[in-house]
Design a protein around this nucleic acid. Structure first.
Lengths: 259, 259
DNA sequence: CCGTGGATCTCGTGA
DNA sequence: TCACGAGGTCCACGG
């Protein structure tokens, strides 16, 4: 077997079996395309009759079966599943069992178009920007995004609520509580914010309430107006720009330190 | 291009470009493996540096990038995205744009191990049967599935055992305990049921014991007979029908409320 | 180990 | 098109 990639076009069941067996034991990335049927029994049960699909098996035991269309895999197995393969009546039968949920996935190939076995080298780190944390940090270090002249008094992340809060004064000196959400504000979020705000208003203080997010649903908008909560649109691209600026600055600071 | 499958091992950028271009226009299923980097900007933003991955492009514009491990794709684009490809500085650059969310995914290949282009024929229908919860709910609201005239006294889910229980009276007024399993009953399940039943019989009561499931293994069947436990076959399709009926009813009730 | 909430969730369905 | 709920959701995190 070639170190980097092995493949067989239109393999016999036996050839496919052999390459698959070796690839599984060496924990390689396997791609099988061909005519198959699929059965699943576990938390639910499903059946998929003969058709041409693409099967992916990863070194950690993940398994995915993709059809011609659609984002989602039609059948799958999360990491940690255990494989058994066999030749049976001219078919190549692949079973994947996951103990945790007592799930069994059975894939029978009647005809294999292409069997590929790869060694994938990939040490890169996946970086996700504008996660909730980063949006929060960006606003925190650049309150003008919220509203020009806004001064932050305190900040706090309420993990449980999935919301970041700022308290501060707007440019007219009014005490303000801001709830930041990275995603479209729905009715639920407005209710949540109202509940939270009520706690402050109950103390007799005059409080301005703002929900800051990239967008808001029409219904949530109505409710917010009703409850006297303002919606402040946050331009994500502004966040990205500000975030990049911060990154650049921190890099410069780092290089300053190192010299 | 071959009707069913075309592939190039270690293609030049130009060869890859040409096959990819044709495959995209013909809406074929494309698999690219090789060294690439990935950038995403849209609802969020992400960056993934050079590494070897597997790229899938489907005929409906779905796109998936899979790394060596993990069930989930590291980057993706749901159906309906539009592709542009170009050769740029020795790289093959694939861009996928989705208008709906203004999302852009950019994949740059520096080195392609294998490029595959397939025509997948797959007309099969995917059949999903009941999950455990649904089976339980269905029986609960429709005890006749268990046995005509069965009246449920109490019901209980024992999560730990993966079993749902009903107690009640059969149409002859006999006190009955029913254990429901969504999957084929094996010896283990029968033993478990017997153990559970013994607790009731120990109290001196006369109890009828039933295991309800779609099927039973021959060995489990023998054991059940031996232990005086009855097996009641549950027709999953009846469950499905009843379940659909329930769904319809609850929808009607909802619309009644709203009017 | 279980429960909770987020996700570039995706995907259906109904208004 | 939008809002809502389900999913074999998966997954990370807290307890």
């Amino acid at each position: 077997m070639n170190e980097k990639v092995s493949w067989i076009l239109q393999p016999t069941v036996e050839d496919a079996y052999n390459l698959l067996k070796e690839s599984l034991s060496k924990k390689r990335f396997i791609i099988v395309t061909g005519l198959c049927k699929v059965d699943y029994v576990g938390r639910a049960a499903s059946k998929l009759d003969w058709g041409e699909r693409v099967l992916l098996i990863k070194q950690d035991g993940s398994l995915l079966i993709h059809r011609a269309k659609g984002f989602e895999a039609v059948n799958w197995q999360p990491p940690g599943s255990i494989f058994t393969i066999k030749q049976e009546g001219g078919l190549l039968v692949i079973k994947s069992y996951r103990k945790e949920h007592q799930e069994t996935l059975t894939i029978s190939f009647r005809d294999i178009t292409l069997l590929t076995s790869l060694k994938l080298v990939d040490e890169a780190e996946f970086e996700m920007h504008l996660s909730e944390d980063e949006m929060y940090e960006t606003i925190s270090s650049n309150p003008d995004i919220l509203e020009p002249g806004f001064r932050i008094l305190s900040q706090q992340r309420r993990i449980d609520a999935g919301v970041a809060d700022f308290t501060g004064y707007d440019n007219q000196g009014r005490y303000t509580i801001v709830e930041v959400k990275r995603r479209t504000v729905d009715v639920k979020a407005v209710k949540q914010a109202y509940k939270y705000l009520s706690g402050f208003k109950g103390k007799g203080a005059s409080v301005r309430g703002i929900i800051a997010a990239p967008s808001i649903s029409s219904e949530a908008s109505r409710l917010a107006t009703l409850l006297g909560i303002e919606f402040k649109k946050i331009d994500l691209s502004k966040c990205v720009a500000a975030h990049k600026e911060r990154m650049k600055t921190s890099l410069l600071e780092q290089s300053d330190k190192s010299t």
